[in-house]
C-alpha cells in the first residue's frame, strides 16, 4: 500500500498498477484490522477498480460487508468497492469457523464449527 501511495504522490500510479497487473492474483491480507487514512483507501479503491474483471483479488478481512465503510470511510466509495469486489466472486464466510491456532493453543478437540450463541 505504501508503494502505491508513493507512486500516487509521484504521479506514477498507473505504472505501479501496471506492474501489479502482471500478477494473476493479488492477495490483500487482513484488510480492516488497521485503520488507514483517506489516501490509502483511495489507492486501494483505485487498485480494486483497476483489476475489476481483469485480474483476481484474494481479499481477507475480519469485517462483514456492512462494516466496510470503516475501511473506505466514504459510503459511496464503499458501495462502489463492494460492487466491484463482489461481482464475479467467491465468498468464504469464515466467521463461524474456529481459529485453528486458538484451538491448537488450547489443545482442544473442538467441533468443526463453533455454535452461534
Amino acid at each position: 500500500m505504501q508503494r502505491l501511495l508513493a507512486a500516487k504522490r509521484d504521479l506514477r500510479l498507473p505504472q505501479e498498477l501496471a506492474k501489479l497487473h502482471r500478477y494473476a492474483c493479488l492477495v490483500l491480507d487482513d484488510i480492516g484490522y488497521v485503520q488507514h487514512d483517506q489516501d490509502e483507501m483511495e489507492v486501494l479503491f483505485t487498485l480494486l477498480s483497476d483489476r475489476y474483471e481483469q485480474r483476481s483479488v484474494f481479499l481477507s478481512t475480519n469485517l462483514v460487508f456492512s462494516e466496510w465503510e470503516r475501511i473506505f470511510k466514504n459510503p459511496l466509495t464503499t458501495v462502489a468497492a463492494i460492487d466491484r469486489v463482489v461481482h464475479h466472486s467467491v465468498l468464504l464466510d469464515m466467521m463461524q469457523v474456529r481459529s485453528f491456532r486458538v484451538q491448537q493453543a488450547t489443545g482442544q478437540q473442538a467441533p468443526e464449527v463453533t455454535r452461534g450463541s
Binding site: N62, V64, L92, M94
Partner: peptide
C-alpha cells in the same frame, strides 16, 4: 479473474 473474499477473524 474471479475474486475471492474471505470474511472472518
Amino acid at each position: 479473474a474471479i475474486n475471492v473474499v474471505a470474511v472472518g477473524p
